[in-house]
Write a protein that binds this DNA or RNA. Structure first.
Lengths: 107, 107
DNA sequence: ACAGATTGTAAGTCATAACTTACGGTAAGC
DNA sequence: GCTTACCGTAAGTTATGACTTACAATCTGT
């Protein structure tokens, strides 16, 4: 549930498609695999990685397993990202001003 | 400068260390490589990936090249993440309430 | 109890990408 | 102009991980 596992989890394209597919609501493994160009076991492995990253939760529903998005992993990612966001913005802004000043001074 | 390239770029651990090292301010390639357990060309390749992802900018300074964090890639990532954040939070909340209700009903 | 459905895991294959060394190019200093 | 410093790129090697098929386990319905 740290930000790094969430990053590596969301790096894979098909795993991202699995994750994005859960945005329309919780779904079972078979339903997720249906419509994806990979086999069902592959989806299972992807869901395992997403779960270990704190990005999804699973709950048994009869013989099938329903997966849903877990905000924990998303929160960790957002926190790490915000750690950069403000500082990078202000730094970039002052950088732009510095460059603009150099441009002016050169003329 | 799309969110997916930024994700795959930040997935690699050493590349993340390169990126995080720029948080303390712009730095040249050699300075970044010094202190990292990889060779300088490796750092160059990582910086190339980060640049293509819109996460860093580079500017020549004499014979060396200074890299800095670019908010563009971060913004794209944040936008994609926020697309999930609110919805996932509310969905998770209603899910918690649903489970709590089930717990109550069972007693 | 048995048959069908749904899923997780194991073993194996194969492509990707992270790293190294070697080389070429450009700017600065004597 | 020549050497030195700093950097990017090419080529090659190797480890990681994404995918497949095969199998075992669990739950439901008849």
């Amino acid at each position: 549930m740290t930000y790094d596992t969430a990053l590596t989890a969301l790096a894979d394209p098909t795993r991202r498609r699995v994750f994005e597919r859960l945005q329309s609501g919780p779904q079972a493994v078979g339903a997720i695999a249906r419509g994806l160009p990979v086999s069902r076991p592959a989806v299972s492995q992807h869901l395992k990685v997403l779960k270990e990253a704190g990005l999804v939760t699973d709950r048994p529903e009869g013989t099938r397993r329903v997966y849903a998005i877990d905000p924990h992993g998303l929160g960790a990612l957002r926190g790490w990202l915000d750690q950069f966001w403000d500082q990078a913005l202000t730094a970039f802004q002052s950088e732009v001003e510095r460059t603009a000043k150099d441009e002016r001074d050169r003329k």
